[in-house]
Design a binder for these strands. Structure first.
Lengths: 158, 158
DNA sequence: TTCAATATTCATAAATTTGTGAAACGGGCG
DNA sequence: CGCCCGTTTCACAAATTTATGAATATTGAA
């Protein structure tokens, strides 16, 4: 019951720092974590600005980014234009590279390198083929892993 | 036999761009791809600088980074100071987040949030618990996936 | 329709990241 | 022992990213 807001602020900022180090933009990461630990279902842009000491413009840009990658959902509030931003159930899955086509793209580039080298026995060709195989493996397996997670969640709902 | 250097240069730059978009530093990504497609076993710092039009200083910093994350290996050349940089067999595995403790760290932060909220039925606590569960899942399963890949390689070497 | 409140856009400022050149360093060879 | 080549370090410059403030647009209510 004793909601420890100091500890929560630390979790928000430290987790956001980790996500940022992993290539995630900073303010979006902080928003993501803030929406995670909030009491209610979601927060308005103004509330996010207050909580994070960020300008309305910065919040606007960051939530636009989060929406395009599917990490937040904008929910209209009946009879008000203060829309609320909420995390969908699968927000964390969306933060994963697995959701993006990048592994397949890299595999294709590596295959293009094999073709360009045109000497299957050369060291460069062998390395490229190895890269292609690895990313093909990931492009196939990671979606399976996510599917496995979704099945698990279905079994143990929230 | 007709090694198509123009096509290879395109593969190098485009793949590096994809890696960069995924949060990988730019020059290290270009070096990684250049070492991938080179004819021989590796390249010297000078050769990399020529190939990529980068200063010796930039190459020095980038290979230092790549070495610390285990993506390149420095091989001394007997009787010369021109060390050679080579990709180890598992270079691609090393580029993966799975190699880093970040998922476990994020899971721990999420668990800290659950404790700080101290009300297991609240929306914030439930969301935090869900985040924790997801990252715990990844922290366990991704290393298994990498292990699976290593086994596959052992079966189909080269 | 007009007012009040909120959200978005755009140009710009601040901060961070990335790469350069010059100088210092260090190992190999005469 | 001392010179030479290549590498690394350091301070600085360029480029990119990120956030701001002011102006503009949009919506709900009177």
């Amino acid at each position: 019951m004793a909601r420890d807001d100091v500890a929560l602020a630390a979790v928000v900022e430290q987790s956001a720092a980790v996500l940022t180090a992993a290539g995630f933009p900073k303010l979006p990461a902080r928003i993501l974590m803030t929406l995670l630990v909030t009491e209610g279902e979601g927060m308005t842009a103004g509330e996010l600005g207050d909580a994070l000491n960020a300008s309305a413009a910065a919040i606007s840009g960051a939530v636009r980014y989060l929406q395009t990658v599917g990490i937040v959902r904008r929910v209209a509030q009946p009879g008000s234009r203060r829309d609320r931003y909420e995390l969908p159930d699968n927000a964390w899955v969306k933060t994963m590279d697995a959701e993006r086509p990048i592994y397949g793209v890299l595999a294709s580039f590596a295959e293009a390198a094999v073709v360009a080298i045109d000497d299957p026995t050369s060291a460069g060709s062998l390395r490229s083929a190895d890269m292609a195989a690895f990313y093909r493996f990931l492009a196939e397996r990671l979606p399976q892993l996510i599917e496995e997670w979704n099945e698990l969640r279905k079994g143990n709902p929230g």
